[in-house]
């Protein structure tokens, strides 16, 4: 029982990170119908940015409270990653709007290759690791054993919940969110009604990247190690989460993320750790083949 609960906590933590990245995929797919293949690498870039800013802060002002330092890191990482994502959209995707359907996907693959190699070039190919940032946690006795609720796990789950609430509010209640949903339904009509479609799409990319940066900071806190190639697999898993939850749906992305996190953790705990990525990829394939609209997505109506 305690083992099961421990894995549950671990799965929820991992799933939160996937869910945050998945929102970037789902929002972009919802609004322009493209798979932002470079999103996983934007996440990887944000981990690097967070890492550098964190080391910079702790070397400039030693003895800063860890909470304050993390908030500064979070804000910097969100801003800078959003700037990157804005630039990527501007350079690689906006000129292709209205082009044939595969062009943005291929451009995104090119951007992904570029980002991976850019980071490898400027930061070197080795793993970068930090000493543990946040140690300790609550130990809760359950039945015969204990489960450990690390502080960083609580931080991750809480941050995810708070940010999701904030973004949910933005999408549902603000005029930007209304514009986004309008563009999702009919871009041409939205532009006729005076919505700046390009700006809305850019802001969607910025929001997705900011959430990926949050995931990046949490990833840094949780694992403390990053490599230039760490974007691909989390990216694919987050995309799987987005598809599983129903692409285009914000709560779907989170639920999908949590499910993928849980499946991955339980699979490694009870079956085989070697095949955990195979499990994730198989879920992706099975979902797309048998349930392409996901758990909460709207079915895709084909008009002839």
């Amino acid at each position: 029982m305690d083992y099961f609960l421990q894995q549950l906590v671990n799965g929820l933590t991992l799933g939160s990170v996937y869910g945050l990245i998945a929102i970037g995929y789902t929002m972009v797919y919802g609004i322009i119908g493209m798979i932002n293949f470079a999103h996983g690498d934007v996440f990887m870039l944000s981990v690097f940015i967070a890492l550098i800013v964190f080391v910079l802060i702790s070397s400039l002002v030693g003895g800063l409270a860890i909470a304050l330092a993390l908030i500064i890191v979070l804000v910097c990482a969100m801003a800078l990653t959003a700037l990157w994502s804005w630039a990527i959209e501007r350079v690689a995707y906006r000129p292709l709007r209205g082009s044939f359907r595969l062009a943005p996907l291929i451009s995104a693959i090119g951007m992904s290759i570029f980002l991976v190699n850019f980071v490898q070039l400027v930061q070197g190919p080795r793993n970068k690791s930090l000493p543990p940032i946040m140690d300790g946690g609550f130990v809760i006795p359950v039945g015969s054993g204990n489960i450990t609720l690390a502080y960083k796990q609580i931080l991750i789950i809480l941050t995810t919940a708070v940010l999701l609430a904030a973004f949910w509010f933005v999408v549902q209640k603000t005029s930007l969110g209304r514009a986004q949903r309008a563009c999702e339904q009919d871009r041409k009509m939205a532009s006729l009604l005076g919505i700046d479609v390009d700006r809305t799409i850019s802001l969607t990319f910025v929001m997705g990247a900011a959430l990926a940066a949050v995931a990046g900071v949490l990833f840094m806190v949780q694992y403390g190690v990053v490599n230039f190639s760490d974007g691909f697999v989390p990216g694919i898993k987050a995309f799987t989460a987005a598809v599983l939850g129903g692409i285009g749906s914000l709560p779907g992305a989170v639920i999908g993320g949590l499910l993928i996190g849980l499946i991955e953790v339980f699979w490694s705990a009870y079956f085989s750790i070697d095949y955990k990525d195979v499990a994730a990829f198989s879920i992706l394939a099975v979902t797309l083949i048998f349930m392409p609209s996901g758990l909460l997505g709207k079915p895709d109506v084909e008009k002839v």
Partner: peptide, 16 residues
């Protein structure tokens, strides 16, 4: 590979 990625993006923008 850096140039490869850039070339893919540039080609798509220039001649999709």
């Amino acid at each position: 590979m850096l140039l490869f990625g850039m070339a893919m993006v540039a080609m798509m923008v220039w001649r999709p």
